[in-house]
Amino acid sequence: MWDYSEKVQDHFYNPRNAGAIEGANGTGDVGSLSCGDALRLTLKVDPDSDKILDAGFQTFGCGSAIASSSALTEMIKGMTLDDALTVSNQDIADYLDGLPPEKMHCSVMGREALQAAVANYRGEEWKDDHEEGALVCKCFAIDEVMIEDTVRANNLSTVEEVTNYTKAGGGCSACHEGIEEILTRVLAEQGVAFDPNAKIDMPKATQPKLTNIQRMKRIEELLDEIRPNLQRDKGDVELVEVDGKNIYVNMVGACGGCQMASVTLGGIQQHLAEGLGEFIQVMPSQELARQAGA
């Protein structure tokens, strides 16, 4: 049985704002192929203030789909449309005290219904911009499409690289067979055979040696390259100190307390090492303080 929070159960057993709104002026119909769930969100928007006066939902779906729909309507009532559009699927999940990883797409469906309904009110056409695949990594809710796209975009060839780029496989590791299968398939398209023993090549330090200033600038540039990935998860990274091969960083925002921080640091380390063409070690800045204290 699913480990649904009390909040999810409450919103499922006692759904708020069920049914279509009378005199609605914005409607969003979306479905999630991955669960066969579908949701119609109806909004009544005040044209003068752009405020959502009322919201109602009709859902064909499981317990968490109904709970996510109910939560969404509660959250957005009284908001302006622009404010409502800032509600993320994570906000919906947080409002419900979390959803099982397999059920996160229910909250995604809620957010999409909202975007579709606002677009409908504004007379715009809404297009869905993401595709969902079968869940591969249950620890971090990473699906097949996400892994495939990342493997293609970054020419990845090992499970370790997939973990560094997507987090998939960074937890219990039970999905490594599945990740290997994806790699085998994608690499085969490029005429390459998957090699489970492949080591990630470290480029040889053939470039001329950088000055300290050049090296620090290069490190900043390399960090900027991966920053968007961290920001997408509502986190960020700050460079604190460079001491020879030891590079100290500060993980901020969501990355700070994330249980994946060590894996993320591993990913940053790999990116810096490849970019600099030398072996370096990335450590959290707390380590610097600890060493100073010692």
């Binding site: 979306v30 479905g31 579908a38 119609r40 995604v108 999409e112 579709a116 809404w126 869905d128």
Partner: peptide
């Protein structure tokens, strides 16, 4: 008390 008329057409969501 029944399905909406022509249910597949009356509700045809955008599937992701």
């Amino acid at each position: 008390n029944g399905p909406v008329e022509d249910p597949e057409k009356a509700f045809a969501p955008t599937y992701a």
